[in-house]
Amino acid sequence: MNKLVLLACLLASSLAQAENNGFSLGLVMPYGGLGAKFSIGNDSTKYFGGVGYLIDQDDGMPSDKHSGTASFVIGFDHAIVNEYHTIGAAIGTISHRKYYFGDYNTVGLAANYTYHFSGFNQKSWMLGASLYGGKQNVPAYYRGGMTYGIGLTAGYNF
């Protein structure tokens, strides 16, 4: 947890010095689950780092055994057609599972589309979708392999 706080402070410090930066809160891949996304860039492209919290997926364990994990994401968004539509890519933690024998994260890639209601560089609500895939970090004898999915994203850019 201390590393998460340190990373957030370093990102906030460096972003405060940038000319075209952003901060947003939201859900799913670009935000690392439920989290925040810090970005720098220009009018058409922004590079970001996301720090969030992922709640573990249901694997049949009793509900009192569920937990979550800190997650990290880095990537970029690029405006297309006009300032309301962006596409991007990200790499980071895409899921978390708690098995009887331990906690495991899935790290992978995502392709994102986002619609910005007031524009890419404005204070605005955002809705979008992510296509993601990644390798489960579990022992090979227990459901190891690739994970794929589609996630709806929602957030607000400050």
Rank of each mutant, 00 (worst) to 15 (best):
L7Q: 09
A8P: 00
A12I: 01
S13C: 00
S14H: 02
A18G: 02
A18H: 05
F23W: 05
S24N: 09
L25H: 03
G26W: 12
G26P: 11
V28W: 11
P30S: 06
A36P: 06
K37V: 08
S39H: 02
S39A: 10
Y47C: 03
G52D: 14
I55E: 10
I55P: 07
Q57R: 14
D58A: 11
G60L: 12
G60M: 12
K65G: 02
K65P: 02
T69S: 15
T69M: 07
S71E: 03
I74R: 06
I74T: 10
I74A: 12
G75V: 01
A79E: 13
V81N: 05
N82K: 02
A89L: 06
I91H: 00
G92L: 00
R97F: 04
R97N: 06
Y100G: 09
Y100V: 08
Y100N: 06
N105W: 11
T106L: 08
G108K: 13
Y113P: 13
T114S: 13
T114C: 12
N121F: 07
Q122Y: 04
A129H: 00
A129Q: 00
Q136K: 11
M146K: 07
M146P: 07
T147L: 14
G149W: 14
T153V: 11
A154C: 15
Y156T: 02
